[in-house]
């Protein structure tokens, strides 16, 4: 039980995909203009990650080694397209905000990375738990980055405005994304990372 639980919690700090593994930087920087946007992007990635991890752990034993990467990419792309269709149908607002970065989950190194490093060597349930753990870690990081940028840039948190007027606009724009990620990484390195 302890081992199962650690599969999930490892993704939070020890194997945090954003601050430790530094994977999937593009959506991390682009979609975190607010906490809600970061959360939505994280959950979308979580969805693909869990399903593709499960499918790949089932497929791995029967796929010849030579074509395993193309097969994985096809599987991931399929789940991403499923996600696109489902989001268009049920959460059109979120789909419109995240835009290009939903199809780009296909090339998010986290998804292919977990397939290669974990899912093809473990059984379905472990792979699913690993997907949930890493996905939640990613969601958490994106939400935190989004929250910091929203608080500093728009004077709001999760869409709730606690300060009249604007914040420091630069934080919502491109430079703020790099700056906030850089400083959060510093804080993470200093206080949370166990060497």
């Amino acid at each position: 039980m302890g081992k199962k639980l650690s599969l999930i919690t490892d993704g939070f700090i020890k194997n945090n995909p954003t601050f430790v593994l530094v994977l999937g930087m593009c959506p991390t920087l682009a979609t975190t203009t607010s906490a809600i946007n970061g959360l939505e992007m994280g959950l979308a990635t979580l969805f693909v990650l869990v399903l593709s991890n499960m499918a790949i752990s089932l497929l791995a034993p029967i796929v010849p080694d030579k074509v395993h990467i193309p097969v994985y990419i096809v599987v991931i792309a399929t789940f991403v397209t499923v996600l696109q269709l489902v989001m268009q149908a049920f959460t059109p607002g979120a789909y419109a905000t995240l835009g290009l970065f939903i199809p780009l989950i296909v090339v998010n190194c986290i998804v292919l990375g977990r397939a290669e490093a974990f899912a093809n060597k473990h059984n379905v349930w472990e792979s699913a738990l690993d997907g949930i753990g890493v996905g939640l870690g990613f969601t958490l990081s994106l939400t935190v980055i989004g929250l910091v940028r929203e608080v500093l840039g728009s004077g709001a948190a999760f869409g709730w405005k606690f300060m009249p007027g604007d914040g420091v606009l630069a934080f919502v724009m491109a430079p703020g994304a790099f700056l906030v990620l850089g400083y959060l990484m510093v804080i993470f390195n200093k206080y949370l990372k166990k060497s």
């Binding site: 497929l59 029967i62 796929v63 010849p64 030579k66 074509v67 193309p70 097969v71 096809v74 599987v75 792309a77 399929t78 397209t81 499923v82 269709l85 489902v86 268009q88 149908a89 049920f90």
Partner: peptide
């Protein structure tokens, strides 16, 4: 090898076709 890739592609295409049909109305 090629057979495997083809089968996976066909299967994925079928899944997507199904999901597309299901989500078309919504």
């Amino acid at each position: 090898m090629v057979l495997c890739l083809t089968l996976v592609c066909l299967f994925c295409a079928a899944v997507l076709g199904g999901v597309y049909a299901l989500t078309y109305e919504p």
